[in-house]
Amino acid sequence: MKKLKLSLLVASSLLSANLVAGELTVVSFGGAYGAAQKKHMIDPYIKETGTKILFEDYSGGVAELKAQVESKNVKWDVIDIEYIDVERACSEGMLEVFPHDKLPKGDDGKAGKDDFIPAAIGNECAVGNIVWSIIFAHKNDLKTKPKTVADVFDTKKIPGKRAFRKRPQVNLEWALMADGVALKDIYKVLGTEKGVKQAFAKLDTIKKDIVWFDSWSQAPQLLNDGGAVIVQSANGRIYSAIKKDKSDFNIVWDGQVYDLDGWAIPKGSKNKEEAIKFILAATKTKPLAGMQDVAYGPTRKSSESLIAEEVKPQLPSAHLDKGIKASAEFWADNGSQLGEKFTAWLIKK
């Protein structure tokens, strides 16, 4: 009898383990952003088509994607990718080319291709999904409040830990801004060996005060539990912490590095057709406007009319003069080399 039970248990667990496998595996960044995507893109699509979707978190970057593609073991079907990475991912053959001509009309009737802002469909492998920004934030009860990126790098003025995402992107840009390089020259300077040295030297000055995190979800957490006094974050995470969790945080737009995120399909996805259908549906006017839940701007012009007035000042587009756009081309060309340098720098005492 016992044996029978055991084998039944084994058999049932075997079956169920196979049954729950989703037909579409979609990965994104989780947290408040993931919740907004689930609400406005994933759930409506499931409801409409009955497709099973496994919605997973990842922490960005091209590494895992590349590993899957190169080992010919592609587990993901749709990926939310930062445009800072998309150029590289596309040029290295990690993504399928997306049929942009299939993009449906906007709700105002404008043809799909004209409705998107040009940057959103500027890369042949992806469809823009949000306009977001990397900003820094602090608690309002901080004695001296940081106003500029230079303040972030000034531990005398504002003592305490700073939390940055563990990668060279944005950190090197900020280091140069804090060191007085003009916004328009950041990538030009960073393209030279001297500029790279300068950036690392600036980072060196606060190295022991930096807490590194791997995933955007950790940023509001670190601020909340006192792990850091200033955190680098995606603007939406902080916005949602302020709005939903009533956290007493403040966003500083100075030095913002704004960028797009887009949906793309990993090369060799087992469900390519279904993935295309999903992306087409998820980038319609309404779902894109839904991203205002986390203060991310839409990539379709037709979505703009759906944005609530009180959200507008919280969108990155309201503060463009204070920062720069992340250069996908620069990071495509220099990402791996600076990544190596960054890792070595990090490990070195």
Binding site: L9, V10, S13, L14, S16, A17, V20
Partner: peptide, 13 residues
Amino acid sequence: NLALKNSFYFAFM
């Protein structure tokens, strides 16, 4: 839930 099922399944087998 999925993780729990998977854990038992892989461990049993």
